[in-house]
């Protein structure tokens, strides 16, 4: 294992220190915690947004703390849900007296720890609501299992719910728009290499030079199938076929797309994938209103990418294009 670290045990702590030093105009760290909060909190009476999860997905979630997106982000150990006491600190930091929305990705550990935290925060008098993102179409959606994972589609939830909260909407309204995004957003990814969890010291799995893992999650957990390597065009087709079928996507629909690198795939390759996704959607008669390409929700140094589609209506489009100013996502006002 070769990593730019000091001690394995200090990885998360030291990364948070570095982030706050890099972005003092955006972020503060709540003392004695792993919570990043806005350096300039939103006004009283606005709904707060808290997200969090294991570390190793940078810039998620601390990179999205700022105007128009999150109010606080809680970092767990690498690929491990944060603990309830830390989440409660995040909720307190985000509370501006109008309630706090928790955006949780659908993983057993995250759900349990956020549940416990919510119970604690509510007993301390902070009104909370929670939404669970489950956008990964690679995983079968079944009531009898854990259900689908939450992956990069979470970024669209942060953006759209965060924009509405910034406008002064109520907790119910912010929760409703987050749930609306979750109901529509779909993603799927693939890995070309594994990643190495610092504490484990070796790659989580092995892939041959000519193999890829389809339907990968964001924790190095195995995907749904191992198969021979594909071209960028074939990859876009494989992912979009599955996403489109799940969405019932049809010609004339407007969508936003997120092309998300998993940590080690260069922007050059992600751009090729973006071009293929756009081309595929053009061929299908789907209108691509917005596309973001880059690293939004990574899996340490995994090579590979995920593609997310979100069908848009006028309101979702306006909220997606609303201004935001965070370390990882800065967007000016769009002048139509």
């Amino acid at each position: 294992m070769k990593k730019i670290i000091n001690q394995v045990e200090a990885v998360v702590d030291e990364a948070l220190t570095g982030l706050v030093r890099t972005f003092p105009q955006y972020l503060i760290r709540i003392p004695q915690s792993r919570v990043l909060a806005r350096a300039y909190p939103k006004p009283e009476g606005r709904v707060g947004l808290v997200s969090g999860g294991g570390s190793g997905h940078e810039p998620a979630h601390g990179g999205y703390v700022g105007y128009g997106m999150l109010d606080a982000a809680v970092a767990g150990e690498v690929f491990t849900s944060p603990t309830p006491d830390q989440i409660v600190e995040g909720i307190k930091a985000a509370d501006r007296g109008a309630g706090v929305l928790l955006v949780v990705k659908n993983y057993t550990g995250d759900i349990m720890n956020f549940d416990i935290a919510r119970e604690l925060a509510e007993s301390a008098g902070i009104t909370c609501a929670q939404v669970v993102v489950n956008d990964d179409v690679a995983v079968e959606d079944s009531l009898f299992t854990t259900g689908r994972r939450g992956i990069a589609g979470t970024i669209f939830v942060h953006k759209i719910a965060g924009a509405l909260a910034e406008q002064g909407a109520s907790l119910k309204e912010v929760q409703a728009v987050a749930e609306e995004v979750i109901a529509h957003v779909r993603s799927m990814g693939f890995a070309l290499t594994s990643c190495t969890v610092p504490a484990a010291g070796q790659p989580t799995f092995a892939l041959a030079d000519d193999e890829l893992e389809m339907g990968i999650g964001i924790h190095g957990e195995p995907g749904i199938a191992r198969q021979p390597m594909l071209s960028a065009r074939q990859l876009a087709d494989a992912l979009l076929k599955r996403i489109a079928a799940d969405l019932g996507l049809h010609a004339g629909q407007h969508v936003a797309a997120l092309i998300n690198g998993l940590g080690a795939s260069p922007l050059l390759e992600l751009s090729i994938l973006a071009g293929e996704v756009a081309h595929w959607l053009d061929q299908a008669g789907v209108v691509l209103d917005v596309m973001w390409t880059g690293e939004f929700m990574t899996s340490l140094e995994m090579a590979g990418a995920s593609v997310t589609l979100l069908p848009l209506d006028d309101r979702r489009r306006a909220l997606l294009l609303a201004a935001c100013d965070t370390p990882a996502l800065r967007q000016g006002l769009r002048h139509d």
Binding site: G54, G76, E77, T80, S81, P82, T83, P84, D85, Q86, Y107, T108, G109, M112, N113, D115, I116
Partner: peptide, 15 residues
């Protein structure tokens, strides 16, 4: 355990 383990294990053992 609840405040140091994290993940599902920490929540399950702790609670």
């Amino acid at each position: 355990l609840l405040s140091t383990v994290g993940g599902a294990s920490g929540a399950l053992w702790g609670s």
